[in-house]
């Protein structure tokens, strides 16, 4: 079976992805949120596996992770919530989380479970490229999981080429220097960066994340790329409105 992410990337349109922390706002909102996002026309979803010490995240996602953990979210529980998700949802699902909880679950067991419930890929910000290739790539491949790597405006060309070569899906382009939720908008610096990457003609399409929060930033971010991911802005919406009005939120983006 061809991986759903790769299939989705073939579609001739700009892709919109949404991130949320599993277990937030309420412990059992996970499947509701996923279904509503699909119904609202979102192209793929990043399900955040909450972690006590999310280094690359700003206050908004830290807080949603903390609340999710307080609510009782665990790795095992997330998998059991997702047990029947493929009977209901067809768009690609990616788990985004930090490495330590996966290490404790057992990377092999974690990947096997992902494949079993129908997860298509993983984003693990603190699992570096070299360790992945040396120790875990074979396991990911065996379970048909796509591993997504990040690049930032500071990533050198040579490193980007390396990451492109190691990727088989898309490249997660962090829009600017900073943790999630810290960007105030896009300016010339981002445009230069977006253009620089576009001119590298990488084999993997790029999806932009960090700082996408409305129709304007979505449009800017996807001018030269394949799509964009919204995280903190959606978490803020959930904070205010709960799980109601997800489609209203998505419609404000595109």
């Amino acid at each position: 079976m061809i991986n759903r992410i790769k299939q989705k990337l073939q579609e001739d349109k700009k892709l919109l992805s949404i991130y949320f922390s599993a277990g937030f706002p309420s412990l059992n909102d996970t499947t509701t949120i996923i279904q509503d996002l699909e119904k609202s026309g979102v192209d793929f979803i990043e399900v955040g596996l909450p972690f006590s010490d999310p280094l690359a995240d700003g206050p908004t996602i830290q807080e949603s992770s903390t609340i999710a953990l307080k609510n009782g979210m665990t790795t095992e529980l997330l998998f059991s919530q997702l047990k029947d998700i493929r009977k209901m949802v067809h768009i690609p699902l990616i788990i985004m989380g930090y490495f330590n909880p996966m290490l404790q679950y057992g990377v092999e067991a974690f990947c096997a479970k992902c494949a079993e419930v129908g997860i298509d890929g993983l984003i693990i910000p603190d699992l570096p490229l070299d360790v992945y290739e040396r120790e875990y790539k074979a396991i990911f491949d065996k379970h048909g999981l796509v591993n997504i790597f990040l690049i930032t405006p500071q990533t050198g060309d040579e490193r980007i080429q390396q990451i492109d070569a190691a990727s088989d899906g898309f490249i997660y382009m962090v829009s600017s220097a900073g943790v999630t939720g810290s960007q105030s908008g896009f300016d010339n610096t981002q445009e230069d960066y977006f253009n620089r990457i576009a001119n590298m003609h990488l084999k993997n399409p790029q999806i932009v994340g960090f700082g996408i929060k409305d129709a304007e930033t979505f449009k800017q971010a996807t001018k030269t790329t394949k799509g964009a991911i919204i995280g903190s802005a959606f978490i803020k919406h959930l904070h205010k409105e709960g799980v109601k009005g997800i489609s209203t939120f998505v419609k404000t983006i595109r």
Binding site: S52, F99, N100
Partner: peptide
Amino acid sequence: KEGVIHGCKTLLMQTNDGQIT
């Protein structure tokens, strides 16, 4: 138990679920 904290693999105090205590 063995785990990853602040950028290195080492021994660290954590829950069974890998949350740092």
